[in-house]
């Protein structure tokens, strides 16, 4: 699980072009959107692409993403459950 989280952080940085960040800058439980990393609705779509490309998880309704993309913790939990 912790390996998955580290991998996820690298994938997030890559997919969202967060070039100034390192995985260490992203806390597992910290909110990714809003006051957290400052991500927005376009990033939510990029998360959907990331999940499909790397984990073969298909989210067809973007509104489902809200809960899933709250934090690295919630993302990892979702992937574990659906893979």
């Amino acid at each position: 699980m912790s390996d998955l989280k580290e991998t996820l952080k690298e994938q997030i940085i890559e997919q969202l072009n967060l070039e100034d960040l390192t995985p260490a800058d992203i806390q597992n439980e910290a909110p990714l959107f809003g006051e957290g990393l400052g991500l927005d609705s376009i990033d939510a779509l990029e998360f959907i692409v990331l999940l499909e490309q790397n984990y073969n998880i298909k989210i067809s309704d973007p509104s489902e993403g809200k809960e899933i993309f709250q934090s690295v913790d919630s993302l990892a939990a979702y992937i574990e459950k659906h893979q």
């Binding site: 376009i42 779509l45 959907i48 692409v49 499909e52 490309q53």
Partner: peptide, 11 residues
């Protein structure tokens, strides 16, 4: 290769 496309460049 799939239906899921990265939207940022389009936007």
């Amino acid at each position: 290769t799939s239906d899921f496309l990265s939207p940022t460049a389009f936007i």
